[in-house]
Design a protein around this nucleic acid. Structure first.
Lengths: 116, 116
DNA sequence: TTGACATATTCCTATATGGGTATATAAATG
DNA sequence: CATTTATATACCCATATAGGAATATGTCAA
């Protein structure tokens, strides 16, 4: 079997560094293709092709406006990655560990009879 | 040009779903290859090959113990992904937005002359 | 030494990629 | 309609993949 298609899921789509740059570029808001071309300085077909992949996984939306096509980032589609990575946060964010522990302790104080 | 090698960075290594499962399996602590084979039920060469990729990007460490090879997850190597995704958190975690705003407001109160 | 066990490596193949270049489609404009 | 502008698509190619099967390497034990 070959490698999974880039359009399989956000993980694969975002593995390509240039596609991440496109998403970052769209972070400020809706942009037409040529705006992205201007900001990134890559050939237009390259931008269009990367946008096509991002659109197929739902990471961007498109709407027509005259002869332009305005692309907007659909950030929610990145949540699965965020959720998956969360399980590993403890490996670098010890601060967070402490926050969580404190939260759990507080929860335990509020419901001290939950675990008899 | 072909697709970037899976060993280029954590993003590419983790794009493969099975590789994510291997990492999750190692989350509980060091495991020998055969333990992973047992838990995931995949052919041993498949596990070894995925481990090789993960090791090359530094997502796992290995140490020999007798005839076994014990693999341990190196979670810190996932931080770049976490950091990149953070810029998009606002797209789903509105709660977090409010927390951040509050923190910024508080910081502004502490140093009210920073922006004259 | 000879096995048995644990793991890695090699060889194969179908498959999809990303970039480049050229061209097609579509919409506004004169 | 003809032309310009904005974007997408088609075609080509070198490349690396993931999986399967077979085999190699390494290590302990009798």
């Amino acid at each position: 079997m070959a490698r999974a298609p880039t359009t399989l899921d956000p993980f694969n789509a975002v593995a390509e560094p240039k596609r991440r740059l496109v998403l970052e570029t769209l972070c400020g808001g809706e942009l037409a293709v040529n705006d992205i071309v201007g900001r990134l300085g890559w050939p237009q077909p390259m931008i269009s092709k990367h946008l096509a992949v991002l659109k197929e996984v739902g990471l961007v939306n498109m709407r027509r406006h005259g002869r332009q096509r305005l692309y907007r980032v659909e950030g929610k589609k990145l949540k699965p990655i965020h959720d998956w990575i969360k399980a590993f946060e403890r490996f670098w964010d010890h601060q967070l560990d402490r926050i969580k522990e404190r939260a759990q302790r507080r929860a335990a104080e509020k419901a001290p009879d939950k675990n008899p």
